[in-house]
Write a protein that binds this DNA or RNA. Structure first.
Lengths: 245, 245
DNA sequence: TCAAAAGTGTTTCAGATACACCCATGT
DNA sequence: ACATGGGTGTATCTGAAACACTTTTGA
C-alpha cells in the first residue's frame, strides 16, 4: 500500500551523539552531479528529514526517519521548533538539488524540527543510498537549506533542557562514569565544572545509582560505574510535585 | 490579488491578557445552527487561528491574525509548539462545524502554536462577524478541537519563559506598580511570593526603573510607578553574556 | 487615629563555589 | 615511587526565605 505524503510539510531530525569527548551530530552527505557529464557540481551535508504522510503523527514521522537511519526505535526524541520561512530554500545550489530530485524549488515547505539523543556506540549507521556520518557540532561547516539555523536552535534547546532534566544518560552508555558525565556536560554547555561540586550534585540525584563495578586497565585508579534509574527518577519527580505549594 | 492558502497548515494564537487580578485568554465563540431550522446545535469557544498563505512566514501569519483581531501590530509573539496529530479533529461536533464551513473534516491539518502577551486595556476587540471575549485561563471549559491541549502547552511555556525573562511588562500597562507586577507573577505561576523578597529581586533588575510618579486616590499610601527599559535590559544582558565564562 | 497597602530591614538557612587533600592503580 | 585521574572533605560566600517593622495615605 502506498501512502500519500504532505507536499508542504516535513520533519527534520537533529541527531546528537557523544563519543566520550565531543558532541556530534549525524549528517547526510549530499552530492550533485551534472546529469550529462557526471561532473561533480557540489558536495555538502544536510540534516536528515523527510515529508510526512497524510494522517501521520509528527513524532511518528520523526521516528520513522530515525529508525530508517539507525535501526533503533526507542530513541529519545523531542520537538523543538517549526521552520516555515518562505526563504528556507533560497540558495541556488539548494534549488538545483531539489530540481535534480524532480521536485519544485518554489514549493513552500514548513518543517517541524525534532532533536534526538543517543549513545553513539549503539548505532551502526545504515548507509543505504547515501553517506551518513557523525560530525562534531562545532565543525559542520555550511549545511544545505536552513539547516545551520535548525541545528543552532536544536543545540540551544538541548542546553536549556539539560539544565532542567537529567538527559545525559540518553547520550551515554547504560553504565557510565562520573567523569564521562562531566565531560558530556562540559561539551554541551561549553563551560568547565569543578569536579568536587559536580559530584556533590550527582550525589543528590538519587536516580543516578552507583554500581560496585569498576573499569580496570586505565593505568589509574579505576572509576566507579553509575546507571540511571528511570523508576527512581519518576518517583522522586512525583514526590517533588506532590509537595510543591 | 487573491493569495492561495496552504490547505494543511494553520497557525493558532493563544492570546493572553491580564486585568489586574487574573490571567485571561482571548477566545472566539463558535455557534453551529441547523441549516434548515436555524436551531442551535451547539455553542462553545475556540482559540483564534487561520490557515497560512503560500510563501507566508509563519510569524507573519500569526501577526495577521492578531492584527485582524486587535488592531495592534506590535504584540509580543512567540512560537511554542506544533500540533499535528491526525486525531486533532475527532470530536463529532468539530467535524460538523468543519462541514458547515464547506471544508472536509478528514483533512490532516498541522497547526503551529503561537502565544502572545498584551495589556488587556490596550485592546478594543474587533467583533467582526464573530463574538470574541476574554476568559480567565482557569475557566475556559471544553474548547473546540484540541485547543485545550494547545492552551495548556502555551501556559506551561509561558511559565517557563517567565522564570527566565522579564516578560511581565508585556502584560502590564507602560507604567505599573510592583504590587501589580507581583499579582501578575502570582496569577501566572500559581504561587504566592513574599512582598519583601519580591521587591528585593526587582531592585536588582536595573531595567525596571522607578518613577517619581505615584498613583493617588487609593485610600492608602500611594504606590510608586515603574517602567521597563528595553535599552537597559539589552545592555545588561550583553554584559552578563560577555562576562560569562 | 485607625485600617490597609506601600515599602524597608534583619536574621536565618541552604546551596553554590573554591580549593585543598587523600586514594588507587599501572608503569 | 610517582604520575595521573578518581574521589572526598572543609571553609566561605551568595542568595533565597521568613518575618518583623516602619511609612503614608484616605476615611
Amino acid at each position: 500500500m502506498k501512502r500519500s505524503i504532505h507536499q508542504n510539510i516535513s520533519v527534520d531530525c537533529v541527531i546528537f551523539g557523544f563519543d566520550s569527548s565531543e558532541l556530534k551530530v549525524l549528517l547526510v552527505e549530499r552530492e550533485l552531479h551534472d546529469e550529462k557529464t557526471g561532473e561533480l557540481i557540489f558536495k555538502d551535508r544536510t540534516l536528515t528529514g523527510n515529508h510526512i504522510y497524510l494522517h501521520e503523527e509528527l513524532e511518528s514521522a520523526a521516528r520513522r526517519i530515525l529508525d530508517d537511519l539507525t535501526g533503533i526505535d526507542d530513541i529519545y526524541l523531542e520537538q523543538f521548533f517549526t521552520f516555515g520561512s518562505p526563504s528556507r530554500i533560497s540558495k541556488e545550489k539548494d534549488k538545483q538539488w531539489i530540481r535534480s530530485q524532480g521536485r519544485n524549488p518554489d514549493e513552500h515547505i514548513v518543517t517541524v524540527g525534532y532533536f534526538s539523543l543517543l549513545d553513539i556506540n549503539r548505532v551502526e549507521i545504515k548507509h543505504k543510498d547515501r553517506n551518513v556520518a557523525w560530525y562534531p557540532v562545532g565543525e559542520v561547516g555550511e549545511l544545505g537549506f536552513d539547516h545551520n539555523e535548525i541545528l543552532d536552535k536544536a543545540l540551544s534547546t538541548l542546553r536549556d533542557k539539560l539544565m532542567k532534566e537529567p538527559l545525559a544518560y540518553e547520550l551515554l552508555p547504560d553504565k557510565f562514569t562520573l567523569t564521562q558525565m562531566q565531560t558530556l556536560y562540559q561539551a554541551i554547555m561549553g563551560v568547565e565544572y569543578d569536579k568536587g561540586n559536580f559530584r556533590k550534585k550527582v550525589a543528590k540525584m538519587k536516580y543516578l545509582i552507583p554500581l560496585d563495578e569498576k573499569i580496570v586497565g586505565n593505568a589509574h585508579r579505576p572509576p566507579r560505574l553509575y546507571f540511571f534509574s528511570r523508576d527512581v527518577y519518576e518517583f522522586t519527580r512525583k514526590q517533588l510535585f506532590d509537595f510543591s505549594v
